[in-house]
Amino acid sequence: MRIVLISDTHGLHDRVPQLPQGDILVHAGDFMNAGYDVREVVSFNRWLGEQPFAHRIVCGGNHDRLFENSPELARSLLSNGIYLEDSGTTIAGFSFWGSPYTPAFLYWAFMYPRGEAANAHWDRIPDALDVLVTHGPPYGILDQTASDGPHLGCEELLKEVRQKPPKVHVFGHIHGGAGIHSEGNTLFVNAAYLNESYKPFEPAGQIRVIDL
């Protein structure tokens, strides 16, 4: 099973180069930019439908405000993807679980105060997952805007991932942390397409391909 991973396109999905071939496309959130305009979802949904994958999995992010403020409307517009929000799905025997929530920062969507409040989301992560999709990173793993910057990931998410290690944990949110890291039996992927200046990384926007 080949999975293509991407995150943080922020409304620039039509500028993404042709994606690598695969069976499942996973987008880990922030596909919108301002986050309120339904046309952003309509455009993203059209783009999703144009991608030649048998399945497309989508998790929200802090910019995807319509999915928090008008969830029924937003979800109805995302007809070309399986939307995960503290929920999971199984495809061809492979398990996926996704959540858009991240630690509080300014006044965006899907946020919680740092500390025990995070466990309302992370306690729900199932055991023996193949792919965990969260918008934000765990603390200390691919979670810096620059190599000398502070770690911005979630401490509680890190604890949960270490207790219930998935085969793959894909996220974005912290654009400068884009890359891959292995720890134990888990492959961590920050799949942010845009850098901290909201311009595509090179080459090919750090689009990642993994085989399960």
Rank of each mutant, 00 (worst) to 15 (best):
F67I: 08
V131H: 01
Y107K: 15
L48E: 02
I125L: 12
I82N: 00
E50G: 10
V131C: 11
A54P: 01
G153E: 03
G81K: 00
G149L: 08
L106F: 14
R114G: 13
G61W: 01
C154T: 06
T90C: 05
W122E: 07
L152N: 13
L132V: 03
F53S: 00
E85T: 01
Y83D: 08
A146E: 11
R75I: 08
L106P: 12
A118S: 15
Y139R: 12
S147Q: 10
G153W: 09
H55S: 09
I91N: 00
P113Q: 07
S79V: 15
A104K: 15
L106D: 13
F94D: 06
M111C: 07
L84F: 00
G98I: 02
F96T: 00
I82S: 00
A118V: 08
E72N: 09
Y107E: 15
I125T: 09
A146S: 12
F94M: 10
P71R: 06
P71E: 06
I82G: 00
L78Q: 06
A92C: 04
P126Q: 01
W108D: 14
S79D: 02
H135K: 03
P113H: 08
G98L: 01
A92Q: 10
T134A: 07
P138F: 06
P137S: 05
T145R: 13
S99T: 14
C154Y: 03
N80E: 14
L106I: 02
G115W: 13
T90F: 05
I91Y: 05
L84P: 01
H151C: 14
A120S: 11
H121K: 06
G93D: 07
P150H: 10
H63G: 08
R124N: 10
P113T: 06
N69D: 13
W97Q: 06
L84Y: 01
V131D: 07
L152R: 11
L84N: 01
Y107A: 08
Y83G: 01
N119T: 12
P126D: 06
D130F: 09
F67L: 15
W122N: 03
Y101Q: 04
D130K: 10
G81F: 03
W122G: 03
W122S: 03
F53W: 04
S147Y: 12
P150G: 08
A128C: 10
P52L: 02
G149E: 10
L73E: 13
H121S: 05
S147L: 15
P150W: 08
W108H: 15
G81Y: 00
W97I: 01
V133D: 03
A120M: 09
L142P: 12
T89E: 11
D130R: 07
T89D: 05
A74I: 06
G93V: 06
D64S: 05
T145G: 09
E72A: 11
Q51G: 04
D86C: 09
G49L: 00
T145P: 09
P113R: 12
F96D: 02
L66N: 02
A118C: 04
L73K: 13
G149I: 12
I57N: 01
P138D: 03
S76V: 05
L106H: 14
V131L: 11
P100L: 05
A146G: 10
R124L: 14
F96M: 07
A117E: 13
P100I: 02
M111N: 03
R65H: 11
A104E: 12
